[in-house]
C-alpha cells in the first residue's frame, strides 16, 4: 500500500496548456534576469544617489537641478543611500548614474570595477574628521593610544586618518586594538566606555563633541585631506557628458549659496540627519565649499589613500587613481589647444 502512495500523489502528465505555461514562465524569468543584469535608464534621465548629509541633499531639496536640466529634456530620479559603499556598488552596477562619497569608498569601488569615474571634488575639509577621546580620558596624545581600543568604520576616510596619525606618532598599526563599528554603534560603545577612542567624521563628530564633551585628540589637519568626491560611471560620462557638466554646475551654484547661508543649510538638513541645527552648524563650519575638477594634488592625495589601504591588505591589488579621472569635454578641448 505504501509503495503506491507516491504514485497516487504524483500529478498525471498533462498534454494541455502546461508547455505554454512553462514557456511563459521561462520567458518571464529570462526577462526578469535581463532586467536585473541591465538596470533600465530612460534616455533623457539621470539617476542620482545621495546621502543624508552634503550638497546633493540641498540640491534635491531646492529642486534647482530639475529646473537646470529641463531645457535638455532630462528628468532626475533621486535615491538615498545610508553610506558610500552601497551607493558606489549601485553606481558600479549601473543602478544609478551619479553620486557622491568620501575618500575611501571610491578606492574600493575602483578596485572592483573599471567603470568608476571621478568627475569632481570639493576642497579638503581636514577638520571634518577626528580621533575623539572621552573628556576625562588620561589619553593626551596619539602616542598614548598604544594598547588602547579604537572604534572606527573599517575602510572609511577615518581609517586612513588613523593609519596616518599612528604612523606620525610612531605607534605601530598593530599596537592598537581596533573595534570595527558603524557610527551609531560606535557612538553607543564610546558613551558606554567600551572603547578608549573613536575615529569619526562630521556630522557625527560634532554631535559627539556636543553630547559627551569629547576631546579631539587629532583631526585631519596635516594628516588627511578628507575630500568629498562626485562620481559617475564610464558608460554615463561617455554618453551624456553634457548632463554631467550641468549637474556639476548646479552643485557649484548650490555650494556658493550654502557658503553664505550656514544657518539656513543647518535648518534644512537637521530633520533629515536627525541632529539639532546648532550642532549641524558646527559641522557645516568645518566644511569646504566649491566644486572643481580633480587637479594633480587631489589625485596625489587620493593615491596616498589607495596605497595606504593596499599596504594594509584591504585592497586586493594596487590601483592608479588617475586611470579613473574624468575630464570635462571643454577642458579636454583646452588641454588639446595647449599641447598644440
Amino acid at each position: 500500500m505504501t509503495d503506491r502512495m507516491p504514485r497516487a500523489l504524483a500529478l498525471p502528465p498533462s498534454d494541455g496548456p502546461a508547455p505554454n505555461r512553462r514557456l511563459l514562465l521561462s520567458a518571464g524569468l529570462g526577462l526578469a534576469a535581463a532586467a536585473m543584469l541591465r538596470p533600465a535608464r530612460a534616455a533623457g534621465s539621470i539617476r542620482i544617489g545621495y546621502q543624508k548629509y552634503g550638497s546633493l541633499v540641498l540640491l534635491k531639496g531646492r529642486g534647482s537641478l530639475e529646473t537646470a536640466l529641463q531645457p535638455l529634456g532630462v528628468t532626475v530620479a533621486w535615491s538615498e543611500f545610508p553610506s558610500g559603499p552601497p551607493l558606489l556598488e549601485a553606481l558600479n552596477a549601473g543602478a544609478i548614474d551619479f553620486g557622491s562619497a568620501g575618500e575611501a569608498p571610491p578606492i574600493f569601488a575602483q578596485a572592483a570595477s573599471p567603470e568608476l569615474r571621478y568627475v569632481a571634488t570639493e576642497p579638503p575639509a581636514p577638520r571634518g574628521e577626528a580621533i575623539l577621546v572621552p573628556k576625562d580620558s588620561p589619553v593626551r596624545s596619539v602616542a598614548d593610544l598604544r594598547g588602547k581600543t579604537i572604534a572606527l568604520n573599517k575602510g572609511s576616510n577615518v581609517h586612513f586618518l588613523l593609519v596616518r596619525a599612528l604612523a606620525q606618532a610612531g605607534v605601530p598599526y598593530d599596537g592598537v586594538k581596533l573595534a570595527f563599528l558603524a557610527p551609531a554603534d560606535a557612538n553607543a560603545a564610546f558613551v558606554r566606555g567600551s572603547v578608549d577612542a573613536w575615529a569619526i567624521w562630521d556630522p557625527y563628530l560634532a554631535a559627539a563633541e556636543r553630547a559627551t564633551g569629547a576631546r579631539v585628540l587629532a583631526d585631519g589637519q596635516g594628516l588627511a585631506p578628507n575630500r568629498q568626491f562626485y562620481l559617475s560611471r564610464r558608460g554615463f560620462t561617455d554618453s551624456s557628458p553634457e548632463i554631467v557638466s550641468a549637474v556639476l554646475k548646479a552643485i557649484g551654484e548650490v555650494d556658493a549659496w550654502a557658503e553664505g547661508h550656514a544657518d539656513a543649510v543647518a535648518a534644512e538638513l537637521a530633520p533629515a540627519v536627525g541632529i539639532p541645527a546648532p550642532v549641524l552648524g558646527v559641522a557645516l563650519g568645518r566644511l569646504s565649499y566649491g566644486v572643481a575638477p580633480l587637479d594633480a594634488a587631489a589625485v596625489a592625495d587620493q593615491q596616498k589613500v589607495a596605497d595606504a589601504f593596499h599596504g594594509l591588505g584591504l585592497l586586493p591589488r594596487p590601483i592608479r587613481v588617475a586611470d579613473a579621472v574624468w575630464t570635462q569635454p571643454e577642458r579636454r578641448a583646452e588641454n588639446r589647444a595647449e599641447t598644440r
Binding site: P85, P86, L88, E89, N92, F108, A109, A111, A112, S113, A151, K154, G155, L178, A179, F180, L181, A182, D185, A189, S194, L314, P316
Partner: peptide, 22 residues
C-alpha cells in the same frame, strides 16, 4: 557580528559589502 567583531562569517559578509567584493 556587527558589534565590533573582526572574525566570523557575518563579519566576512559585511566586509565583502563594505569593500565591493561580491
Amino acid at each position: 557580528e556587527l558589534m565590533g567583531a573582526s572574525e566570523g562569517l557575518g563579519y566576512l559578509l559585511v566586509d565583502g559589502q563594505q569593500f565591493s567584493k561580491p
